[in-house]
Simulated assay, not measured.
Amino acid sequence: MNAMEKLYQVILERKASAQEGSYTGYLFEQGLDKILKKCAEECGEVIIAAKNGKAEDTIGEISDLLYHLTVLMANEGIAWEQVEAELERRAQKLGNLKKFHQVDKDT
Rank of each mutant, 00 (worst) to 15 (best):
K37S: 08
I59W: 14
G44P: 02
A55G: 01
V71Q: 12
G44H: 04
K37Q: 05
D57H: 10
L65V: 01
G60S: 15
T70H: 13
L69W: 02
I47R: 12
K54H: 01
N52H: 13
A50K: 14
A49T: 08
A55C: 10
E42C: 01
Y67L: 11
E42T: 03
I62W: 12
K54V: 10
D57M: 11
K51M: 13
K37D: 13
K38E: 13
L66F: 04
S63H: 13
T58S: 14
E42Y: 04
D64P: 00
V71F: 06
E45N: 03
G60W: 01
K54W: 02
L65G: 02
V71W: 10
A40L: 06
A55H: 01
C39R: 03
N52Y: 04
V71G: 06
I48G: 07
G60A: 12
I59T: 11
N52R: 15
D57E: 13
S63Y: 11
E41R: 00
L69D: 01
L69V: 08
L65T: 07
G60P: 14
A40I: 04
G60M: 06
E45H: 01
V46R: 12
I62R: 11
S63N: 14
E42L: 02
C39K: 00
L66W: 08
C39Y: 03
H68F: 00
L69A: 13
L36E: 04
N52P: 01
V46M: 08
K38I: 06
A40K: 02
H68V: 04
V71D: 14
E45M: 04
G53M: 00
G60F: 02
A50Q: 12
T70L: 02
T70M: 06
S63C: 07
A50V: 15
N52A: 13
C39M: 09
K38S: 05
A50I: 15
D64T: 03
C43K: 05
V71C: 07
A50D: 00
G44A: 10
D57C: 11
L66M: 03
G60Q: 15
G44D: 02
A55M: 06
A49C: 13
Y67M: 05
I48N: 09
I47K: 15
L65N: 01
A40E: 04
E56S: 11
D57S: 13
I59S: 08
I62N: 11
S63W: 05
T58Q: 10
E42Q: 10
K37N: 08
K38F: 03
A40Y: 01
K38H: 06
K37R: 09
E41L: 02
G44T: 03
E42V: 03
S63V: 14
V46Y: 09
G53C: 00
T70K: 05
E61H: 03
G53R: 01
E42W: 01
E45Q: 09
V46N: 03
I62P: 06
I48Y: 09
T70Y: 06
E61N: 05
L69R: 02
K54N: 10
I62G: 05
K51H: 15
V46K: 14
